[in-house]
Design a protein around this nucleic acid. Sequence first.
DNA 1: CGGGATCCATAACCCGCTTATGCATAAGCT
DNA 2: AGCTTATGCATAAGCGGGTTATGGATCCCG
Lengths: 134, 134
Amino acid sequence: MIAVEQLVRYVRHSATAGGLSTAASSALGRLGREGPQRLTELARAENVSQPNMTQLVTRLERAGLVRRTADRTDGRGVLVEATDTGLEVFRQRRAERAHALQQLVEELSEPEQQAVMTALPALARAVQDHRSRS
Amino acid sequence: MIAVEQLVRYVRHSATAGGLSTAASSALGRLGREGPQRLTELARAENVSQPNMTQLVTRLERAGLVRRTADRTDGRGVLVEATDTGLEVFRQRRAERAHALQQLVEELSEPEQQAVMTALPALARAVQDHRSRS
DNA sequence: CGGGATCCATAACCCGCTTATGCATAAGCT
DNA sequence: AGCTTATGCATAAGCGGGTTATGGATCCCG
């Protein structure tokens, strides 16, 4: 199980390198897939606290990847929206990440590769289920 | 590949919960397996900067999990050693972590479980190789 | 209209990580 | 011995990710 620790740190590290952290990338990806969202909604979806999301959005905004707009229907609300640059950067980052992971996987034997292809999505699904239940 | 992001964040989160971060747990584990080590050596082994390791050790020391001792053979050196408490906490943490992962895995189908058992160690090995080559 | 609920921002804090410095000891060369 | 260089560690400053506690707006509803 020590293996997991190393894996996590490796992925995190290689993710940070590209200029977009895992948290930022994840949030940006969601905005890309699902369109503009309320800040609180985003925080809940990404499973982080609201203040944390406020900070993350502030950083992303400073970097020009995201935009805050007022919610016409609710004076309190803030809609967060990915900019074109943001989406572009996200796509690029995702490609880089996929490439890094592919390089890693290529060093494995054929059956091991097969196992990874099965295991990762399965684990991701389990995480998803686990979270929605708690 | 978005799956990986979620997985990483999930593991990191559940790891932090137990009071021992991944970095701390990893370092403590190494000290347990390999005995007292030089601070710089530890930093290299854990693949982080020396100042980072200094800080990490300071925190672990404050928590009573680790001890700094002078290196008799080198006046500059500092040996870092896990305390009994440290080892105990580490073992406990590892058990908890294993349990959490097991719970996750139990929700998968039999072949998926098999795939995870193959994939994780393989990936960890690939990370190891990758790192030692660069 | 008034009071509770909701949305967001701010403040203050910890951990993980970095680079840039500085200080002390070690080692090597003359 | 003495001077220089290399090594080992600590400190400082700064960023990102994360938290709880708090406060100000706005909404909604009785």
